[in-house]
């Protein structure tokens, strides 16, 4: 980490603390509410999103509802998403989806936890909309010209989750085993779901 980076991180930390303490002092938020929220966020990991994806692979009816209304379908699984407005976009043999937030770092945290640092970087945010195929190639995913690339810029109130295509050779696997093939990156759209050799 550069000295400049270390400095800006410290400043942000001071600012956050000052702001939080002021809000608590004025009775707008309580320390207990902040702790509760932090504890809740620690329970959010990509495993939740992977569970949703595997369910969609196994249950066509669920998949249909998930693509129609992501928030309602996920709630149906008993996952608490606290007001998340979810749009699920499906990868197929001819369509590949990629998610970015050019304005900041909007991300489906309720299902994937905190975004990786690269997702928040200026480079990814600028280039994912401008040259998505080059960005995907750098992630190791070179898509042929007959696969359409659809980029989603989460500029406002919706959050996006990519439903990766189910890998071939997974017919013998159960739903939980299939969920293990679904990485965070596959649900952002910079990777495909893993091959079954990884879990067998």
């Amino acid at each position: 980490m550069s000295a400049e980076h270390a400095h800006s991180d410290r400043s942000a930390e001071h600012l956050e603390r000052a702001f939080r303490e002021l809000l608590a002092e004025k009775g707008i938020i309580s320390d207990a509410a902040v702790s509760e929220r932090l504890e809740f966020m620690y329970t959010r990991t990509p495993a939740l999103g992977a569970r949703v994806v595997a369910r969609a692979w196994f249950d066509p009816g669920f998949k249909e509802r998930l693509l129609e209304d992501g928030s309602a379908a996920v709630t149906e699984l008993g996952i608490d998403i606290r007001g998340l407005r979810l749009v699920v976009v499906e990868n197929t043999a001819v369509l590949h989806n990629l998610v970015v937030c050019t304005l900041c770092s909007c991300y489906p945290r309720m299902l994937l936890g905190l975004p990786p640092d690269w997702y928040k970087s200026v480079e990814y945010r600028a280039r994912a909309v401008r040259e998505p195929r080059a960005v995907l190639a750098e992630f190791g995913l070179s898509l042929p010209g007959d696969v359409t690339v659809r980029v989603h810029d989460s500029t406002a109130d919706m959050r996006y989750l990519v439903l990766p295509a189910r890998p071939t050779g997974t017919d013998a696997l159960g739903e939980a085993q299939c969920a293990e093939l679904v990485s965070r990156d596959a649900m952002i759209g910079v990777a495909l779901a893993g091959s079954p050799s990884n879990v067998l």
């Binding site: 040259e131 998505p132 195929r133 010209g145 359409t148 690339v149 659809r150 810029d153």
Partner: peptide, 16 residues
Amino acid sequence: WPDYAGPAEDTLDVEI
């Protein structure tokens, strides 16, 4: 992007 390098079918969705 008039100089976009990919196929004509590639799209970008933005919330407005």
